[in-house]
Amino acid sequence: MNNMREMRNEVQNGKYNLTLEIAEGSYFGVYDDVDVKSGKDLVRNYLRSNSDDANFNDIKNKI
């Protein structure tokens, strides 16, 4: 989770677009596939590991 670049921009009333960039080798060291389930897991783990108080119940991935 330390090898990622984060970019956020507010889209409306406290809702943000979050873009995470991670090196291919780091990603596939943890995940087997590039899919929605792995993407959601990655976002949740990233936010938790950074003690982010974001509500991640409404995650929409673009892969």
Rank of each mutant, 00 (worst) to 15 (best):
I22L: 13
I22D: 03
Q12I: 07
N3D: 14
K15S: 06
S49R: 13
V43P: 01
M1R: 09
Y16N: 00
T19P: 00
M1I: 13
I63N: 11
G14M: 06
Q12D: 10
Y31F: 15
R44A: 04
R44F: 01
N57M: 04
I63R: 05
L42M: 13
N57Q: 09
G14I: 04
F56C: 11
D53Q: 09
S49N: 15
E6Y: 05
M7K: 13
T19E: 07
R8Y: 04
N57F: 03
E21S: 12
N61Y: 03
N61M: 15
N50A: 03
D52S: 14
E10H: 05
S49K: 14
S38G: 00
T19M: 06
M1E: 12
A54S: 14
D58F: 06
Y27M: 05
D35A: 09
M4S: 14
E10R: 13
K37H: 08
Y31W: 13
S38H: 05
I59C: 01
V34G: 03
K60W: 03
R44W: 01
D33I: 00
L20S: 04
Y27T: 00
A54W: 02
R48P: 00
F56S: 05
N57P: 02
G39H: 04
D35W: 01
V43M: 14
G29Y: 11
R5D: 10
D41R: 10
V36M: 00
G14N: 11
L47H: 02
N45P: 02
N61T: 15
A23F: 09
L18M: 12
L20Y: 00
Y46P: 01
V36A: 05
E21W: 08
T19L: 04
N45C: 10
K37P: 00
D35S: 14
G25T: 11
M4F: 08
